[in-house]
């Protein structure tokens, strides 16, 4: 039973990380109908920025608490800036192009960013500093759920609540929902759609950066290639829940995380990624609209 609970919690942890990345995919898709292929790379850049800032600070002897705060802030700021810039360079000029053009551009951007980090930094796996110490009160249950798992879960829930508040009650949140429903109509009622799209990219990137920071301190090492697999899996989660739907992305992420965790725990750990991809293929075949998505009919 302990093993089951352990797998359950590890699934939840994975699920929360996927959720943080999947939200970015689903929000962007909801607003401009584009699969932002470079989103996984933004997550990677977030993790890298956090790594660099945290290591520099720890070398210069800052206390742990301030390192966590500054590294987290740096990751969020830089990832959001990257998200904003990528949208301006690679997607904005293609807003009225055929559907495949922005997708190819996004793939190009993803390859570009991967190699940019590879060339500027290194291709080796880098050890990520421990940001979350093991708390003493966690000692009795540490073999089932570690401190980092708990920290990831709590942070994710807090971020989700914050995001819900932003989208439900603030002005920019309302504008986002309006643009997602009908971009033309949103323009007509005086919403600056360009700003809304930029804001969506910034929020999505910030979420990915938090995900990057958390997972890097959980796994303990990073590499320029982590964004690719994580991006694909988060995309799977977003599709699983119904792309474009925010609660769907969260639900899909937890389903994917738990499936992966149990499958690797009880079946085989070699095929971890195969499970995720097979799940993606199966969903797209049997329920392309996802768990919570709406099926849209194409009209002529």
């Amino acid at each position: 039973m302990d093993y089951f609970i352990e797998l359950f919690f590890s699934g939840l942890t994975r699920g929360s990380i996927y959720a943080l990345i999947a939200l970015g995919y689903t929000m962007v898709y909801g607003i401009i109908g584009l699969i932002n292929f470079a989103h996984g790379e933004i997550y990677m850049i977030g993790a890298f920025t956090a790594f660099i800032v945290a290591t520099v600070l720890s070398i210069y002897g800052f206390p742990l608490f301030s390192i966590v705060i500054i590294a987290g802030l740096a990751a969020v700021v830089w990832s959001s800036s990257y998200g904003y810039t990528i949208e301006k360079i690679a997607y904005k000029p293609l807003r009225h192009a055929p559907r495949l053009s922005p997708l190819i551009s996004a793939i190009g951007m993803s390859i570009f960013l991967q190699n940019y980090v590879l060339l500027a930094q290194t291709s080796d796996f880098l050890p990520f500093p421990t940001l979350i110490p093991d708390w003493e009160f966690m000692e009795p249950i540490a073999h089932i759920v570690g401190t980092t798992d708990l920290a990831i879960l709590v942070t994710t829930v807090m971020v989700m609540v914050l995001l819900t508040v932003v989208i439900k009650f603030t002005k920019i949140g309302k504008a986002m929902r309006a643009t997602a429903q009908d971009r033309m109509m949103a323009t007509l009622v005086g919403i600056n759609v360009n700003n809304v799209i930029s804001a969506t990219f910034i929020v999505g990137s910030a979420l990915a950066a938090i995900g990057g920071l958390l997972i890097a301190s959980h796994i303990g090492q990073i590499n320029f290639y982590i964004g690719f697999i994580a991006g694909i899996k988060a995309f799977t989660a977003a599709v699983l829940g119904g792309i474009g739907s925010i609660p769907g992305a969260v639900l899909g992420s937890f389903v994917l995380g738990l499936t992966e965790s149990f499958a690797t725990g009880y079946v085989s750990s070699d095929y971890e990624d195969v499970f995720a991809f097979s799940l993606l293929v199966l969903i797209l075949i049997f329920k392309p609209s996802g768990l919570l998505g709406k099926a849209t009919n194409q009209k002529v």
Binding site: A90, I104, G108, I111, F112, Q114, N115
Partner: peptide, 14 residues
């Protein structure tokens, strides 16, 4: 090389 491939994809599309 790979950096250039990525850049080419983006630039060609634009």
């Amino acid at each position: 090389r790979m950096l250039a491939f990525g850049g080419i994809l983006v630039c060609m599309m634009i």
